[in-house]
């Protein structure tokens, strides 16, 4: 049986076109890009070459590195806010960046405006992510200087499975500020023993030692 290869190629090509038409729409929905065009060439490139997550991860590593510098908060988190914007610009679903950086901007950097802006962007892009709304609530309490409300929110955020260790650190500081050393110490002991962040773990151990308490092994 003689085959017409050009004809076969045409038939397969048509089938590919039909299948592709069904795929593209679903792929676009699953990719979850932020509505509208990308804001800059880097975002165009990341989207075009399927490097959204990798690019966001690279920015995330820059954020961690920046926060590792002792004077990162001196500019009130201007650089931090910019890095966070870029990270979530690549991957709007990277909610950990919203949470971590939001918390850093809110408390150590004392830049509530930037923190709230970041969280609002996150909520817009991730409407079903309730954690972000809790963070925004915590920021609001803090701006209103409603310490009780702020602590209540922070306690809820700190026990979430994806809570950044910095939130737990902030809670410990708030407890100390509130004059609740037992709660603060409990948080320090927890962070010293279980925190995934080595710097925060060491900070907690330092706190315990300064207060003459036993450092857990």
């Amino acid at each position: 049986m003689k085959y017409s290869y050009p004809a076969a190629a045409a038939v397969f090509f048509a089938a590919a076109g039909a299948a592709g038409w069904g795929l593209d729409g679903r792929a676009a929905a699953l990719l979850g890009d932020a509505p509208g065009n990308p804001e800059n060439m880097a975002q165009w490139g990341a989207r075009g070459l399927s490097l959204r997550k990798a690019a966001a991860d690279m920015k995330w590593m820059e954020i961690i590195q920046h926060c590792g510098e002792s004077l990162y908060h001196r500019d009130h988190g201007k650089v931090l806010a910019k890095l966070a914007d870029e990270a979530v610009g690549f991957d709007p679903r990277f909610t950990y960046v919203h949470k971590f950086t939001g918390a850093m901007l809110m408390w150590p950097c004392r830049n509530p405006r930037a923190a709230v802006s970041l969280l609002e962007k996150g909520i817009r892009d991730n409407p079903s992510e309730t954690g972000l709304k809790l963070y925004l609530a915590a920021f609001t309490y803090s701006r209103l200087e409603n310490l009780r409300g702020e602590v209540g929110m922070l306690e809820r955020l700190a026990v979430a499975p994806d809570a950044p260790p910095v939130v737990q650190k902030i809670l410990a500081n708030v407890y100390e500020k509130q004059g609740r050393p037992d709660k603060a110490a409990a948080m320090w002991r927890y962070l010293a023993k279980y925190s995934a962040d080595g710097d925060i773990s060491n900070w907690a151990k330092g706190k315990l030692e300064r207060h003459g308490m036993t450092v857990p092994q």
């Binding site: 290869y5 050009p6 076969a8 190629a9 045409a10 397969f12 090509f13 089938a15 590919a16 299948a19």
Partner: peptide
């Protein structure tokens, strides 16, 4: 389908 098209071509 794409594989078939490319191989036939």
């Amino acid at each position: 389908a794409w594989t078939g098209a490319a191989l036939a071509a």
